[in-house]
């Protein structure tokens, strides 16, 4: 922990040094960026844009995880459905994010629905692939046990299947979050008039690096905090039954 902190301080020091060498317009010093953050926060523009972007992340992420999990389980458990779905999955996996985004905007208009769908659709195939792996690895012995003890489907899902899928869901969550929050910015840049991505786009047009960083850094901070304080504890919670490594 201490080492990490030191490393972070070193990065800021390097940034400070570099900003002194470079023209300050291209790389403003840390304190200047902090000042812009303060200004944007004071006008509430920062909060509004962060909240807007986070809402889009949340909706797109939830949608992709939910549908991806359902389809993943389905494809992992049924050979027929897997053969049917696999070509679609391969196409979706290999479709560049940009193509999906543009098509969504063209077909659905420059709306929030299009934006969120485009993000979700980019994440969806990865979730399916990860969860499908998990569904294929389900223990048939436990399934037989659940059958002979006539467990109702709710019990089987919650206590037999979900715990086995949990590591895969956690992996999909982790990978998904980092994918989604990166793509959200692109989607906002291309077709929305608010959000962190939009602000970064404006900063780019004005060549205002301080403004760009003032939006990018708090956003990255929030996503890292979610990862550290939500995703990782969730992972630990679902794997608490594993015998601790000596």
């Amino acid at each position: 922990m201490l080492l990490r902190l030191l490393s972070l301080l070193l990065l800021i020091a390097l940034w400070q040094a570099a900003s002194m060498v470079a023209a300050s317009r291209l790389l403003p010093p840390p304190l200047a960026v902090l000042a812009v953050i303060g200004r944007e926060a004071h006008s509430h523009a920062l909060y509004f844009n962060l909240a807007t972007t986070l809402a889009r992340v949340a909706v797109a992420f939830t949608l992709a995880m939910l549908l991806g999990t359902i389809f993943g389980i389905w494809m992992g458990r049924s050979a027929t459905f897997n053969r049917l779905g696999d070509p679609w999955l391969v196409i979706l996996l290999n479709l560049p994010a940009l193509v999906i985004i543009v098509l969504a905007y063209v077909w659905l208009g420059l709306t929030d629905v299009a934006a969120v769908l485009a993000v979700a659709l980019n994440k969806f195939p990865n979730t399916v692939v990860t969860i499908r792996e998990g569904a294929r690895a389900l223990d048939p012995g436990l399934e037989e046990m659940a059958t002979v003890f006539a467990m109702p489907w709710q019990t089987r899902f919650k206590h037999v299947m979900l715990p086995q899928l949990a590591p895969y869901i956690a992996a999909a969550t982790r990978a998904g979050l980092s994918l989604v929050w990166k793509i959200v910015l692109v989607v906002e840049l291309m077709g929305r008039s608010n959000g962190v991505g939009f602000e970064i786009g404006s900063a780019f047009q004005l060549f205002d690096v301080a403004l760009l960083l003032a939006y990018a850094l708090p956003f990255v901070g929030i996503m890292l905090a979610i990862e550290t304080f939500l995703v990782q504890p969730f992972e630990r919670h679902v794997s608490r039954w594993r015998p601790k490594a000596a």
Partner: peptide
């Protein structure tokens, strides 16, 4: 029918009581 399989086949992520 109560069954005891050749291997215990317990749910490792649930307590014994559960």
């Amino acid at each position: 029918i109560g069954v005891v399989f050749q291997e215990p086949r317990l749910l490792p992520w649930r307590s014994v009581l559960d």
